Simulated scan of single mutants.
Amino acid sequence: MTENTFRKRIKANGKSSASQGSLFSKLDEKLNVTAVFGVGIPVKFVPPIMYAAFIAMIYIWSNHRSERMIRQIDLMQREVEDLRADVTTLEAEFMYSSKQSEVAKKIELLGIEEIKEPPFKIVSKK
């Protein structure tokens, strides 16, 4: 008598079901790993590879974040320089417009005249 054995199921396209569904089998087909390792991807190499990929992603994210921060700092520095120039201009205009001669010119339009003599103290006797 013959022994019972399991048969691989064959799909319509001629490939076995194990080669279609497995992630490692797809990687094996694409990267041709069997030529390097002989059998397939050894599972003992997966955790170090995943760890290295994770560290690489953190490194890339950190570089992108730092470059974005540098761009923002540069933009803010330009904005501060513009605001500093505006403040200096406004202070100069304020100092000029608050001079006594400039104030006198502005209040002449309202009919108020500048006093030519100094103020004096009024003393009353009780």
Rank of each mutant, 00 (worst) to 15 (best):
E113L: 09
K106T: 02
L31I: 08
N13G: 10
K44Q: 10
M57N: 14
E3F: 05
E91F: 04
P47S: 06
T34P: 00
H64I: 03
D86M: 12
K105G: 05
Y59H: 13
I115G: 01
K44E: 08
W61P: 00
A104V: 14
W61G: 10
F45M: 09
S97P: 00
S98T: 15
R9L: 08
K30L: 08
K99D: 11
N13K: 06
P48N: 12
H64N: 05
M95A: 15
T88A: 14
A85H: 03
S19R: 09
R68L: 04
Y51H: 14
K11P: 01
L110A: 15
P47L: 14
E29M: 02
G21Q: 12
V80C: 05
E67N: 12
A12R: 14
L27R: 08
P48W: 10
G111V: 00
I41H: 01
V123Q: 06
K99W: 08
E117G: 00
S66C: 02
D82K: 09
A56P: 00
M69C: 02
S22V: 07
S66G: 04
A12K: 13
F120K: 09
K116C: 01
S25I: 00
M57L: 14
V39S: 15
L75M: 08
K116L: 01
R78Y: 02
L75H: 07
S19P: 01
G21I: 02
L27A: 07
W61E: 12
M69E: 10
F94I: 13
N63C: 11
L83E: 14
E81P: 00
